[in-house]
């Protein structure tokens, strides 16, 4: 809808030939630096990983200070717990603890005398039945379809990604089972390339995420996609005490396809 409106406005402005855009200085408040958390637990080996940074003022450079002196603990609902080790500036990792589907994970961060917590349930993985190559009706470029069967009786939330020759998507493409509960279904991703060549490797990933993670990605996308006059806000995260970001526990299933001759 945003594009329609921009198109219409630009059409009108064509003959008015009157509108303009300019870079301006806006006097923005300086917010107190807030803790930014990006934390994941997955069922892949050695994948409990936490990144801590801080917000900066809008007028500052895009350099976000790493938080090095925090105590970061991840525990699961079976009573296992580990304090993570700082391996790079702002990056903390678990050495022993591993993620297991069906458990609820808890994140605790102590920093600057404040305590931040979050929890996330790791859903069971949903197997990918197959992946196939389609074609975009809009651009004619190849698309990747990930086929799977949604488990009935429970609410499922998915994030899906593709990797072509080691090149992974970064966008948060998500779907719930609202319209496909219990069905055999597929999701479609752009390949990001004009054509796939023989021996190209294509990997489809399906992450089983929980509702809070789904909501975080959904609001993240929504806020970044709305038009210039809409009311913006922060994505809805799951971390307490005013920290920004997400703690997501999820299980991963993947499938490889090598393009044939």
């Amino acid at each position: 809808m945003k594009n329609i409106k921009l198109f219409l406005i630009s059409s009108i402005l064509f003959f008015v030939a009157s509108s303009c855009q300019k870079v301006i200085q806006v006097d923005l408040n300086s917010a107190d630096p807030q803790l930014v958390v990006e934390a994941y637990v997955t069922d892949a080996p050695d994948s409990i990983w936490v990144k801590l940074t801080k917000t900066v003022n809008f007028s500052d450079k895009n350099e976000f200070p790493a938080v090095d002196d925090a105590i970061v603990i991840v525990s699961d609902s079976e009573g296992n717990s580990e304090q993570l080790t700082k391996i790079h500036p702002g990056i903390y990792k678990a050495i022993n603890l591993q993620g297991t589907p069906g458990r609820t994970y808890k994140l605790e961060i102590e920093y600057n005398g404040k305590k931040y917590t979050a929890s996330s349930y790791m859903n069971y993985p949903v197997e990918i039945d197959s992946i196939s190559i389609g074609r975009s009706v809009f651009s004619g470029n190849p698309t990747i379809r990930i086929h799977f069967t949604d488990p009935a009786n429970i609410r499922n939330y998915y994030r899906y990604l593709r990797e072509i020759n080691g090149n992974k998507t970064r966008s948060f493409e998500i779907v719930d089972d609202n319209l496909r509960n219990g069905q055999s279904t597929f999701v479609t991703l752009s390949s990001g390339v004009q054509r796939l060549l023989p021996n190209d490797t294509v990997i489809g990933y399906l992450h089983s995420i929980d509702y809070a993670t789904f909501e975080y990605y959904r609001t993240f996308n929504q806020i970044n996609e709305t038009g210039p006059t809409a009311t913006p806000g922060n994505p809805i995260g799951n971390i307490s005490n005013g920290a920004i970001g997400i703690f997501a526990a999820f299980s991963i299933s993947s499938k490889l396809l090598i393009i044939e001759q």
């Binding site: 806006v26 923005l28 408040n29 300086s30 917010a31 630096p33 807030q34 930014v36 990006e38 940074t53 801080k54 917000t55 900066v56 003022n57 809008f58 500052d60 895009n62 976000f64 970064r170 948060f172 993240f220 970044n224 009311t231 913006p232 806000g233 922060n234 994505p235 920004i244 970001g245 997400i246």
Partner: peptide, 25 residues
């Protein structure tokens, strides 16, 4: 009354605006 960012941060490799209150500007 509008909502402007009071800061910014990085998540998943993207720079995101940080908002402190609705319609604060």
């Amino acid at each position: 009354a509008v909502t402007f960012p009071s800061g910014k941060y990085e998540i998943a490799g993207q720079v995101i605006n940080y908002y402190t209150e609705r319609n604060g500007y």
